[in-house]
Simulated assay, not measured.
Amino acid sequence: MSTTNTTAAKAPIFDADDVQGQVQDLYVASEVWLHTHWLQILIAFATGAVIVVALHGLRKLGERLCGKHIAGGTPLRRGWGMIVGRAVTRTSNFFIVMLAAKLVVGYAGAPSQVATTVNFLWTVASVFQAAIWARELILGAIEHRTSSEHYSGEALLSAMGLIRLLVTVALFAVALVVVLDNLGVNVTGLIAGLGVGGIAIGLAAQGIFGDLFAALAIIFDRPFRRGDKISYGTTSGVIESIGLKSTRIRAFTGELRVISNKQLLDKEIQNTSVRDHIRIQFTIGAAYETPPDTLARIPAMLREIAEGEGGKVARSSFESFGASSLDFVLQFDIPGDDWATAHPMRDRVMVSIMTRFAAEGIVIPYPTQTTYTAAPDGTLVMPYAVADRPAS
């Protein structure tokens, strides 16, 4: 019994003859096409030229739109018009030419080899051009927020370099995967590799990325901005700067507090700069010996005093029976958020209440305690003088 070993010949990865044959077929098909469709080709080229000129004009319009936002060589506050204009100016000549070719290749009756080549080049041009436009719009939106909301320039300008790098890498990685997929390449392994690499980088720098995304959340959600007065936890102060990693807050007691952006957003933040009024509350007691008709007039007295000083009264009424007094509550609002104005008004209202109560004979009692002692014989010693009873 004989055994025959057959070795299968492996096809070469790169066959020069095959490539040469494809180029020859493309040349022949193009020559035939030029001879048979020369009129359609001339019309298509003329149409393509018009499209190219129109798109170049649109790009010039974008440059002019950007120029309107520049005065004396210095960019003004970035608006959406400038952002769109800057994105339009990033339109590449390759994309313009391929767009024109894509629009006219069908009309000219191009052979399949030419149409396939145009479709491939159009896919490459459109995908990467879309990535460029998306990058400019995203970065422009971030810059628009940082400039219009008066965020810290130095810190966020240094952060823009990292943000630009991250956005560029992410968008062009997606564009590369889309192009390879259109070429018929199996991108499953590439996507898996990019995913594993992204997870590894994210775990290694999760603190930095957490603070970076928190900074972006502050920019877009705008819970506060530079110069705002905020309170969080047991701390109150004024925002001095918002950076890539942390936010700096000047406490009302004078010290500078630095807190990471993520840790700050995890807390409940009270922004006192955006309130339109400051509410003041007084609890005033009147002695139990005060006549009922006078007690009935006290709420109106308190309202009159507060409104006379410019406050807007929210409540002026009887509150409760206290241990030593009948308690009344006065709540009034002072417009604005400036305590430098609110405190003097508060003091004037308090003094006016004391003056009015004195004029009306209303006593504001304070808690008192009476102590009784006993004599050696057990009789009670009164803490006050006792008048002698007249003899009967």
Rank of each mutant, 00 (worst) to 15 (best):
T290P: 01
L295D: 02
A314R: 12
L264H: 07
A314G: 12
L302H: 11
G311A: 03
Q263I: 15
Q281F: 09
I278K: 09
I298A: 07
E289V: 10
K267D: 05
L302A: 12
I298C: 07
T272Q: 13
P299G: 05
D276L: 11
H277T: 09
I298H: 07
T283G: 01
L302N: 10
D293T: 10
E304T: 12
I284A: 08
D266I: 06
A296T: 10
E304Q: 12
Q281S: 15
I305L: 09
A306D: 03
L295A: 02
L265N: 05
S316M: 02
D293N: 04
L265H: 06
G285E: 00
Q263S: 15
K267W: 00
A287M: 00
T290C: 09
L302R: 11
Y288A: 04
I269C: 04
E268Q: 13
I269K: 03
I305F: 00
A287F: 08
K312T: 15
Q281W: 02
R297K: 12
K267R: 15
F318E: 01
T294G: 06
E309D: 12
Q281M: 12
G308R: 12
R275P: 03
E304W: 02
G285T: 04
M301Q: 15
D276K: 13
L295T: 05
R315Y: 04
L264V: 10
R297S: 13
R279S: 15
V313R: 05
V313Y: 06
L264T: 09
H277W: 06
V274Q: 10
I280Q: 00
A300E: 04
F318Y: 04
